[in-house]
Design a protein around this nucleic acid. Structure first.
Length: 481
RNA sequence: GCCGCCUUAGCUCAGUUGGUUAGAGCGCUAGUUUGUGGAACUAGAGGUCCUUGGUUCGAUCCCAAGAGGCGGUACCA
């Protein structure tokens, strides 16, 4: 049976093109900000990828893993950050420091896929390794907003939301949540503010929450007062960065970690202003948590606000299309030496999927198709196609064995801007017949009877054989505008 | 992982109270038109009725298990 594992998408021309174009525009932004390219292999030793080592029971939980000849565990990379940490650790001596690189390529996660969620997808990252300080994070944040715009998100279609782990820690400390299990449960609940709203999050912080299928999720078991304080923090986001900072000041308390967190956001604000980052693109959002493990300071997330609808007409919440943050301990795992680092990643596949659902990915033009008018001897079609290609026009001679009508349908389905015909009639007259398919389709819309349609031959004309290239080029160039 | 729903043609779905050749619409391939995309008409191709086991004289239909799909939830480094 021909069947495809889900989450591993087949991509046709239009999507391939959209993703590649997006990668080119995003990496152009990264290069402009001074980052250099780095490619690493798709597979790493499993232990280089972090704590998610394959175990004997479930070697493929989360990551795709396999054993080498010598029985070492290898894994397909699940992001581009862990391989960077491995590379930086291995080559630290010889690298310019701080090391600033970008990378683009596929990553794999063995998780349940859904709309906009894949098991193989493209990411486009930029990271600065070996530099601490809020201005370095602010650079990532400002560049992230620019990258989102380069990727095709317009005014009001996205925001970059920023938070810091320090404030989260301060709040947890403030309500006396010291146990690791409780901390994780609270952070996970916070992260779902977007999804479930304040009352859903309150349930998760308290006793627990029942989902639509009747399944129950146990909550963090906080007191009423604890729930109130955590929610007050999560909902402290305001329209501007300054207002949010002010609101946060009243809910995070006066502890050391709280002050450090506020100072961090304040420093980021000042740097963002220096970078000229638009206030509308970047907000502080205390409910942003991100993944739980390797981030140590500021965390940020790019969210697509643009409304997307699937082919059944249902609204799809795409949500996060990029993320990043500071990870000061990742390189230390290899070298033992603490190396500060921060980075950002655009989820190219998810963004492209969102744009495809929003209908912003247009169909590409196909090649000019030269019809084969002589089943016994296709030479003339081959010659004409060659002549067009030599002139730099994308063209092919029809390679099938069908008659005229299927050949026209073929050209139509390929999105050909034009077809060229040269049968015995044309050869005798020293001409070629050229049909502009787009013009033809437009004219045909006004014709109802088939007989009239056939006689009118809309969009079609004869040209001297010598004018072939010039006449076809005019049609192709008109299409490209 | 857990919960719920689902699985018959490429797609959307009928249908058989368990009976011999399983249907429609759309799509596809072609013809009507030496040699013209859409429309119309005509013809054709395409199915282990998800799989395996059970019950039965007989299963696409009943029972069980499994796989796959969709949605929710958990996890998401």
């Amino acid at each position: 049976m021909a069947r495809k594992p889900r989450g591993l998408p087949d991509k046709r021309e239009g999507l391939i093109h959209a993703e590649q174009a997006m990668i080119e525009r995003v990496t152009a932004v990264y290069r402009c900000w001074g980052f250099e390219g780095l490619d690493t292999g798709a597979v790493e030793f499993a232990d280089a990828l972090g704590k998610f080592l394959p175990d004997d029971d479930r070697p493929n939980a989360g990551v795709f893993a396999l054993q080498d000849d010598d029985e070492q565990w290898l894994s397909l990379r699940y992001d581009l950050t862990a391989p960077l940490a491995r590379f930086a650790a291995e080559n630290w001596q010889t690298l310019p420091k701080p090391f600033r690189r970008y990378a683009a390529g596929p990553v794999w996660r063995n998780e349940k896929p859904g709309p906009g969620r894949f098991r193989e997808f493209l990411q486009c990252d930029a990271d600065t390794v070996g530099a601490g300080g809020a201005h370095v994070d602010a650079e990532m944040i400002a560049m992230a907003a620019e990258a989102m715009r380069a990727a095709g998100a317009g005014d009001g279609e996205f925001t970059v939301r920023v938070n810091t782990r320090r404030l989260l820690n301060a709040v947890l400390e403030g309500i006396g949540a010291t146990g690791e299990t409780a901390r994780l449960t609270i952070l996970r609940a916070l992260d779902k503010l977007d999804k479930f709203g304040p009352s859903g999050v309150a349930d998760l912080l308290g006793a627990g929450r029942m989902d639509a299928s009747g399944d129950f999720t146990k909550g963090a078991g906080l007191s009423i007062d604890g729930v109130k304080r955590v929610l007050a923090f999560a909902e402290a986001g305001r329209a501007t960065r300054g207002e949010t900072l002010e609101a946060l000041g009243t809910v995070v308390g006066t502890g050391e970690e709280a002050s450090a967190g506020l100072a961090e956001l304040d420093a980021i604000t000042r740097a963002l202003e220096a970078f000229g980052a638009p206030e509308t693109d970047i907000v502080f959002d205390p409910s942003i948590v991100r993944g739980l493990d390797y981030y140590t300071g500021p965390v940020f997330e790019a969210v697509l606000l643009k409304q997307t609808v699937d082919d059944q007409g249902g609204v799809v919440q795409i949500g996060s299309v990029g993320g990043g943050g500071r990870y000061d301990d990742l390189v230390a795992r290899f070298t033992g030496e603490k190396v500060p680092a921060t980075g950002f990643s655009v989820g190219i596949s998810r963004l492209a999927a969102a744009f495809a659902m929003a209908g912003t990915i247009g169909a590409l033009n196909g090649p000019v198709v030269v019809l084969n008018m002589d089943r016994d001897d296709p030479s003339e079609a081959l010659r004409l196609a060659t002549e067009l290609r030599n002139a730099g026009i994308r063209a092919e001679a029809y390679m099938g064995s069908s008659g005229m009508r299927p050949q026209m349908k073929y050209a139509d389905r390929r999105g050909a801007p034009a077809v060229v015909m040269a049968g015995s009639d044309e050869l005798a007259k020293g001409v070629v017949t050229i049909k502009d398919l787009k013009v033809g389709a437009a004219k045909a819309a006004a014709i109802s009877s088939n007989q009239e349609y056939r006689e009118a031959r809309p969009g079609q004309f004869e040209a001297p054989r010598a004018d072939l290239v010039a006449r076809v080029r005019a049609i192709v160039e008109a299409e490209d505008e």
